[in-house]
């Protein structure tokens, strides 16, 4: 005898019912939590940006951000200006740091569209920080970074993070031993041409004393993530070069 649950009509009804239940459940959850999630993401971005500027509570070899309660205040205290650069046009926008870089990437595939670049300007103890949020691809998924530079494009601080790099290998790009290596690295070569920073395995300078070699030491076993970091720095920060050139003139 055929079971009731084997009938086609039942199957279809069940499928429709399931889609409705699951769909509404998910939509409800997604909509209900959206504000809180967005808020969490915003706070995270502010924390990361401040971290790149050196506004953090690092002690010894530990790594920690400023506390979450203070982040809003600190952010408005240290970040003095937020810009969106589009070609030669520079506009101020107080939410420039929230610009969706993935979307900008996609829009820029259309040659008629000029990429919009966010740039944050901060000041701490008399030093001016230019912070660029950038995004690229690692081994598995997206990687991103906030790179704080001075006006000569020397890195003053960097924060890297990733969506899903291999735990213990590529995932370590958000650890201090990797990020701290970038501090002081020059993005330009001695002739003033943009070189980026290579993440190199055959590095003659593993303790990273030479800051003008455009190289930092790679993480063993994380070649592709490292290459992703280097490629991201090279292709994304290059877009800012003309801004920094204009700054000097």
């Amino acid at each position: 005898m055929e079971k009731r649950t084997d009938k086609n009509s039942y199957t279809i009804l069940f499928a429709i019912g399931m889609v409705i239940v699951v769909g509404s459940l998910l939509a409800f959850a997604a909509a209900g939590f959206k504000d809180r999630i967005d808020e969490n993401k915003r706070i995270e971005k502010q924390l990361n940006i401040l971290y790149a500027m050196g506004v953090n509570e690092n002690e010894g070899n530990d790594m920690s951000f400023v506390s979450k309660d203070k982040v809003g205040g600190e952010f408005s205290k240290y970040i003095t200006k937020q810009l969106i650069i589009q070609g030669d046009e520079i506009t101020e926008d107080e939410n420039a740091y929230l610009l969706d870089l993935k979307k900008e990437h996609n829009l820029a595939k259309d040659p008629k569209h000029e990429r919009r670049l966010p740039l944050l300007i901060g000041e701490k103890e008399g030093v001016i920080y230019y912070i660029a949020p950038i995004r690229g691809k690692g081994l598995w998924d997206a990687i991103w970074a906030y790179v704080a530079m001075d006006k000569d494009m020397v890195i003053l601080g960097a924060f890297f993070d990733h969506k899903g790099e291999t735990a213990g290998l590529g995932a370590n790009i958000n650890q201090r031993f990797f990020m701290d290596d970038f501090i002081g690295e020059h993005l330009m070569d001695s002739n003033g041409a943009f070189k980026g920073v290579n993440v190199s395995k055959s590095n003659a300078d593993p303790k990273n004393i030479d800051k003008t070699d455009n190289e930092v030491d790679a993480i063993a076993g994380a070649t592709i993530t490292g290459n992703g970091v280097a490629a991201m720095i090279k292709s994304e920060l290059k877009l800012y070069v003309s801004y920094f050139k204009n700054l000097k003139n």
Binding site: H105, N106, K109, K137, W140, D141, A142, K163, G164
Partner: peptide, 9 residues
Amino acid sequence: LFMQSREIP
């Protein structure tokens, strides 16, 4: 998922 995350055009 790779197709999505690697943004195959």
